[in-house]
Computed example of a mutant assay.
Amino acid sequence: MSVRSLSATLALSAVLLGVGAPLASARTSTYELPGDPVASGGSKFEGIGHDVRTQRFYVSETTGGEIHRGSLRSAAATEWLQGDGTDGRWTARGVTVDSHGHVYVAGGPNGIDHPGAPDLWVYDRDGKLLAALPTGVPNAFLNDLVIGPDGAAYVTNSNAPQVFRVAEKHGRWTIRTWVDATATIPTQSGFNLGGIVLSPDRRALVVAQGNVGKLWRFDLRTGRVSTIDSGTADLVNADGLVQDGRTLWVVRNSSRVLTTLRLSQDGRTAQLVNATATDPQRVFTTAKLAQGRLLLVDSKFDEPVGLPPYQVVALTPPRR
């Protein structure tokens, strides 16, 4: 075992419960991602989607916008969609997959850096482009996505307190501003709204505002936005969110911590369960739950040039 692999295994087994109790049940493995050679600038990554039906996962590359696809049964992913301007995509952030196998890709600053370019794309399982959508909203940074109970995708804007809704009707795909919470959520310096999941009762969205360490509840029926009471939990640098029943895992990127919360059924409160130190040599951005394990994206955001190996790390997450 390499020094790095040993370090990763040991770091992922440390649970911060105030006394540093070990997480004896942790089980880790890695999936290799393709990427650009270091001489060409290397690669960095952010989002991940999981297709429950096929047990495939999709990872976005911020440096170029490539989308890579892997299988839980294979140690290495392959490039699925080219980047560098393919379908107007030079970068990519959040990824999610709906029950029909549609793969949604959020473009982050794609439309900012390339005015007039799409902010979001939808593909089928075969990689056929179904939609390339601009929001029409200035300075929109589309970050993360979740599929709602209505089958639509809900997408966060990290540059403003907005959530967009992406839907298809009679073969026509649209994106619109679903809720603008400017009157409720102050925009702060840095990345604002990011990770997004459903509340356990599926009647609301739970959204992270990582720069200030807050969680927000967006009511799916009324659009009303309110603060989620998370008690004493430190959620600064909250990035990706993963929800399973009443368990909510918060991936706190540069803090290098995976925080576990217990949500109320309606998503109005969240109680701290534990905080798990992650590998100090990695910055995880987000994750998806697949066959009982979390698949975490090693972003390489802490490196001036993203150096291989490029990986997704899988581990059995803490629950209590």
Rank of each mutant, 00 (worst) to 15 (best):
Leu220Met: 11
Ala152Asp: 15
Val179His: 03
Gly116Leu: 06
Pro149Leu: 10
Asp124Ala: 02
Trp173Gln: 09
Ala181Tyr: 12
Gly151Arg: 03
His170Ser: 15
Gly190Ser: 13
Phe164Cys: 02
Ser199Trp: 10
Asp126Gln: 14
Gly136Met: 06
Thr222Gln: 02
Ile147Gly: 08
Gln188Phe: 07
Gly190Asn: 03
Trp216Met: 04
Leu129Pro: 09
Leu193Lys: 05
His170Thr: 13
Thr182Lys: 15
Gly223Pro: 11
Val166Tyr: 03
Pro149Arg: 12
Gly194Asp: 14
Val207Asp: 00
Ala204Ser: 14
Ala153Pro: 13
Val137Arg: 06
Asp150Thr: 02
Trp121Met: 08
Val225Ser: 09
Ala208Gln: 06
Ile196Leu: 06
Leu120Tyr: 04
Gly231Ile: 11
Thr184Ser: 13
Ala152Met: 03
Ser189Cys: 02
Pro161Arg: 05
Leu220Asn: 10
Ser230Ile: 11
Phe164His: 05
Arg172Pro: 01
Val137Pro: 00
Arg202Gly: 13
Ser158Arg: 05
Thr182Tyr: 06
Arg176Ser: 14
Arg224Met: 02
Pro138Ile: 01
Asp126Ile: 00
Gly231Asp: 07
Trp173Val: 10
Ala183Thr: 12
Thr232Ser: 15
Asp126Met: 00
Gln188Val: 14
His170Pro: 03
Ser189Tyr: 08
Val122Cys: 00
Asp229Tyr: 07
Ala140Arg: 01
Asn157Ser: 12
Asn211Arg: 07
